[in-house]
Simulated assay, not measured.
Amino acid sequence: MRRPRGSPLPPGVALAGCSFPTAPAPRATTLPGVSVRVVQYRSDIPLRHVQLEVVNGSARTVVVAAASLRGAGWSPAPHWSDDDPAEIRAGTTVDLPAALTTASCEARSPLSSARLRLPDGSTRTVRAEDSHGTLARLHEQACFAQAATSTATIVFQGFRPEGRTAEILLDVRGGPDVRRGLVVEQVLPTTLLSPRSGDETWRVDRRLAASGTVRLPAAPTRCDLHAVAEDKVGTVLPVQVRLADGRKGTIDAVAPKALKDRVLAWVVRACGNT
């Protein structure tokens, strides 16, 4: 008869001849030789993803069902999971895409480690690295964008082809503190779009204290088909702004899928590739 732990034995019951199961040894909470590196590829930028690169420096295969970062300044923590676990053979690395969440801007804690969940449901804590400062940079940008949103958001809203040139329309949509105003200082070119004037950037220097539109005359940056075929960030426009309190930063104005396709088709036509 099974009894609760710690209850006394009834009178007359002897211990002799009784066998008790041995408690299983505790499982290791780490994976020696395994670590996680944070990287971001160009294709991740419009998706707001990073890659959790699991590096298996051990001598055995590791199977991972889920992975997440700890102490990286995002809430909830960026994580990857899949019904089909990732198999990382000894001596190899595997990239696991993780979406960026909401930046915790009040008090950012440094990246400390990563947590890996194995197919049996157990978890392991491993060392995490951000050697290129990717998370720190993204966190700074996200916190600036959060601060700017109370004044306005900037959206890549329209695109008007004009033969070999075009006009880009950025909508500045006022937020609750729009009357404080912000200054759109300049917009940086991309791998696909550049100022029609031939200048290095679109100089705007325009203060907006209400919703409005910023118009950018554009021309193709490059005309080789390889640039179009391999494009990842050509329709992500970096907009440099200054807030009313003097802070400066960059907000990415990302074209939606349908608009991106129009831009790509226009570049091909404008370059005479059709």
Rank of each mutant, 00 (worst) to 15 (best):
S150T: 01
S150H: 06
T151H: 00
T151N: 02
T151S: 11
A152V: 12
A152P: 11
T153S: 14
V155L: 13
V155C: 03
Q157T: 04
G158A: 13
F159L: 02
F159G: 03
R160H: 07
P161R: 02
P161H: 06
E162D: 15
G163N: 05
G163R: 07
R164Y: 00
T165F: 03
T165L: 06
T165Q: 13
A166C: 08
E167Q: 15
I168Y: 01
L169P: 01
L169H: 06
L170W: 05
D171V: 00
D171A: 15
D171Q: 14
D171S: 14
D171N: 13
D171W: 00
R173K: 14
R173D: 12
G174W: 11
P176Q: 11
V178R: 13
R179P: 04
G181N: 12
G181T: 09
G181V: 09
V183S: 12
V183I: 15
V184S: 13
E185A: 13
E185Q: 15
Q186D: 10
Q186V: 08
V187M: 11
V187F: 12
L188M: 14
L188Y: 09
T190E: 11
T190H: 05
T191Q: 14
T191K: 13
T191S: 15
T191A: 15
L192K: 11
L193E: 08
L193I: 12
L193D: 08
R196G: 05
D199V: 10
E200C: 05
E200Q: 14
T201A: 10
T201V: 15
T201G: 03
R203S: 13
D205K: 13
D205N: 15
D205E: 13
R206P: 03
A209G: 05
A210Y: 06
A210W: 04
A210P: 05
A210T: 10
S211Q: 12
S211W: 04
S211G: 14
T213H: 13
T213C: 02
V214L: 07
V214G: 04
R215P: 08
A219R: 15
A219E: 11
P220T: 07
T221Y: 04
R222D: 09
C223S: 07
C223N: 10
D224M: 06
D224H: 06
D224S: 09
L225W: 04
H226W: 14
H226C: 01
A227Q: 12
A227K: 03
A227L: 02
V228M: 09
A229F: 04
A229H: 12
A229M: 07
A229N: 12
E230H: 02
D231H: 06
K232N: 05
V233C: 04
V233A: 08
T235A: 15
T235M: 05
T235I: 00
V236D: 00
V236M: 02
V236Q: 00
P238K: 02
P238R: 07
V239F: 07
Q240A: 04
V241C: 08
V241F: 04
R242H: 04
L243W: 02
L243H: 07
L243I: 00
A244G: 01
A244I: 08
